[in-house]
């Protein structure tokens, strides 16, 4: 199964490279416009490459399951973020080369006297800088997530539209019907993609609403929200996966947030999400009333025991609300009567804030489960692990095995914890392919 995902992963990287370089490759076909000096052509090539990468950002964030399955949603979103810097560099160097080698082009910066092609180009670059800045410093700028998401979508669309306008008005590389067809196809593909994301997908969700069954408090300032499909059969998911939830209004709303399932995958007719109160949106979960409508777009993610059927045992390392996907996996394995050995290393602030503490104790009766609590502020008589999960704790509690690929390790929690755990596992010589993590706080 892993080999299958590796092949798919390489395939999509190849497709991405092909799509990203397609404008450059196709522009070389057919009759070429009159050649100009190297730096001007290099500048133009970088502009086309930057536009191509920016357009592909819409594909990366369109939540295509086939695209995310080989890597995991967090990798795709992180790549979306990192490739922005590459595209931004290309796009910024595009005019800079012109300014350096043809200083007369500096006059194009004067938007009052500049031709429309330059106005479109300059505005696109300025808006792209705003878009990137808003994403990098959203928290510092105190921009609320939902508001940021709306503006992120609007700005991205305007930037690409202006950039295409810039290309069309510049005309230099639209000298043959083939190249004109390329850009028309490119435009249709892009508009079609936007229509799919903004119209078709929400419309399909509209026909598959869910209703709130219950909202129950959990330890650790968290709430378990249970929803049932209304007049449809719902969907199957793998334990450990997540979905995007939109509460009330309509699925066309931009106010949607990703949460892991905490319920058993063997009960798909009832989905539970356990959500910690961390921000404006999560604080509203407790106010939901039974019967209220929510929309669930999922499942997504590759973080699941079901992707590793060959494993002889599993280790789960969770911090705080990172227990949610682990709980879904544990509940599912209990439902299935799975007897493979399981180790859960679970870090929390104190004994009272351990979400699912009692249920974990009960699960030890039905599963071959060892739970290791790690407490930052343990009670006076605590003789268990203290502080943060570190290499020494991992060494003490990880099952010993000299066979790679037989113990699969899942990590979910705050980023510093995940970094420390991954470093610890690496130091202990655990093969990179044997541990898995997924994180979502990217902006």
């Amino acid at each position: 199964m892993r080999k299958n995902y590796v092949i798919k992963g390489i395939f999509w990287i190849f497709v991405y490279l092909l799509l990203a370089s397609a404008p450059l490759l196709i522009l070389l076909l057919g009759k070429m416009p009159e050649g100009r000096e190297f730096w001007r052509e290099f500048s133009v090539a970088l502009g086309f490459a930057g536009l191509s990468l920016m357009s592909l950002q819409f594909v990366l964030t369109a939540r295509f399951k086939f695209l995310k399955a080989p890597y995991g949603a967090d990798i795709v979103y992180h790549f979306h973020r990192q490739i922005t810097f590459v595209a931004l560099a290309f796009i910024l160097v595009h005019p800079l080369l012109l300014f350096v080698f043809s200083p007369d082009t500096l006059a194009l910066l004067n938007l009052i006297t500049a031709p429309w092609r330059a106005r479109a180009g300059v505005t696109a670059v300025v808006l792209l800088l705003v878009l990137t800045g808003m994403s990098l410093w959203r928290r510092k700028m105190k921009i609320e997530y939902t508001r940021w998401r709306i503006w992120h979508g609007i700005l991205a669309t305007v930037v690409v539209a202006l950039a295409v306008t810039h290309v069309v008005l510049a005309r230099h590389y639209l000298n043959t019907p083939l190249k004109q067809t390329l850009w028309i196809t490119y435009g249709i593909f892009w508009v079609g993609l936007l229509a799919y994301i903004r119209i078709l997908k929400p419309f399909l969700l509209l026909k598959r609403p869910y209703r709130v069954e219950s909202v129950l408090p959990e330890r650790g300032n968290a709430w378990s929200l249970t929803v049932r499909p209304a007049r449809h059969s719902g969907f199957h998911f793998m334990p450990g996966q997540f979905a995007w939830i939109t509460i009330g209004n309509s699925p066309f709303s931009e106010s949607e947030h990703p949460f892991s399932f905490s319920s058993s995958a063997e009960q798909p007719e009832m989905l539970t999400f356990t959500i910690k109160e961390l921000g404006d949106f999560t604080r509203t979960i407790k106010t939901l009333q039974p019967g209220q409508v929510v929309y669930v777009d999922g499942p997504f993610g590759h973080f699941s025991v079901d992707r590793h059927p060959h494993a002889e045992q599993f280790v789960m390392i969770a911090g705080g609300v990172g227990i949610t996907p682990m709980m879904s996996m544990l509940r599912t394995l209990a439902h299935r009567g799975d007897k493979r050995p399981l180790t859960l290393i679970y870090a929390n602030r104190d004994w009272e804030s351990i979400t699912f503490r009692e249920e974990l104790e009960r699960l030890q009766d039905s599963l071959t489960l060892k739970v290791v609590h790690v407490l930052e502020k343990p009670p006076a008589n605590w003789d268990g692990e203290k502080g943060y999960i570190n290499q020494a704790i991992l060494e003490r509690h990880l099952p010993k095995s000299d066979k790679p690929n037989k113990i699969e390790i899942f990590i979910c929690g705050p980023q510093p914890m995940m970094n420390a755990v991954e470093q610890g596992l690496s130091n202990l010589g655990i093969p990179f392919g044997d541990y898995h993590s997924e994180q979502f706080s990217l902006v």
Partner: peptide, 30 residues
């Protein structure tokens, strides 16, 4: 650790496209 993969992938794709852009410019300007 996993994020390093996407960072290096972005760098790799950036380099490949940069090489293509240079080749494009060379072909056009010769």
């Amino acid at each position: 650790m996993r994020q390093k993969f996407s960072t290096w992938l972005a760098v790799f794709i950036g380099i490949v496209i940069l090489i293509l852009a240079i080749a494009f410019a060379l072909l056009q300007s010769i």
